[in-house]
């Protein structure tokens, strides 16, 4: 990633050995450095490090170009359906339920399949109570309180990056969002683990503690359980990719500009 983003710009391949004199920072002039460290290798290393930081700094200072800004807006737009579509989907099939019991997890709510003749969430809870599993109720999911808030925050940060137009804002956004995504996944897994492990010891049917599948298919008692990310997760996953695209385009544009300026 760094190679892609921080790599040398076209026609600037000799940047580390060549045009050091052109450094915008006088303190980094070779003469000054030489005076400081003599001929020692550590100085060279220091220079490289220094140069790297300079590059990074210049990268963070890179303006986001129009395409990049449009992409960031796109990322914010893509996040909106993530709010309204399920993040995860669990389906439970058995002889009694050939059409499957459905459970959809949204960023802000839990929703069972609902038809004229069945409320799947209620049914799943009714069945789970036999093995002593706590009922799945929205109040137990603190995630439902903060995830929508975070999504809203991310959208605002994205718009902020568009307005301020600096790569650093985009990097903030990317890092924050990736962390948020990873944390959500962990939190979801943890929830599954807790539900499957904190079983009421007085339950009518005793089963060894288990973790319901997070991804894929598993047979549990008389049920075939399928668990897959829902549309919302795909929207969420698209966001960092779009952000990377925005970074890449902006970087490219900057490099082309530099190249042109230098003739």
């Amino acid at each position: 990633m760094h190679k892609l983003l921080l790599g040398a710009s076209p026609g600037n391949a000799g940047v580390l050995t060549g045009e050091i004199e052109s450094s915008p920072f006088p303190a980094c002039s070779p003469a000054f450095l030489r005076r400081l460290g003599g001929k020692g290798g550590w100085v060279a290393k220091g220079i490289i490090m220094q140069r790297y930081l300079e590059l990074a700094t210049s990268f963070f200072e890179t303006p986001i170009d129009l395409r990049g800004r449009l992409l960031v807006i796109l990322a914010a737009v893509v996040l909106m359906p993530a709010f309204f579509t399920p993040l995860w989907n669990l389906s439970l099939y058995s002889n009694q339920f050939p059409d499957g019991l459905e459970l959809n997890i949204y960023s802000y709510k839990l929703e069972g399949g609902k038809s004229q003749n069945r409320d799947d969430l209620k049914e799943i809870n009714s069945l789970n109570h036999y093995i002593g599993m706590r009922p799945l109720i929205e109040d137990d999911f603190t995630e439902f309180k903060w995830i929508p808030f975070v999504i809203g925050g991310v959208i605002l940060l994205a718009l902020r990056a568009v307005v301020l137009g600096k790569m650093s804002k985009l990097v903030d956004l990317f890092v924050l969002f990736t962390y948020f995504g990873a944390f959500s996944l962990w939190s979801f897994y943890h929830k599954l683990y807790v539900y499957g492990h904190e079983l009421d010891p007085t339950a009518a049917v005793k089963v060894p503690p288990f973790t319901p599948p997070m991804f894929g298919h598993e047979t549990m008692a008389n049920f075939e359980v399928y668990s897959f990310p829902g549309a919302g997760s795909y929207f969420m996953a698209a966001v960092p990719l779009i952000l990377l695209g925005a970074m890449w385009f902006s970087r490219r544009a900057e490099q082309v500009k530099t190249y042109k300026t230098q003739g």
């Binding site: 003749n117 069945r118 409320d119 209620k122 049914e123 009714s126």
Partner: peptide
């Protein structure tokens, strides 16, 4: 009867 499932 608080069930919401057919035939319960």
């Amino acid at each position: 009867n608080i069930e919401q499932t057919t035939d319960e």
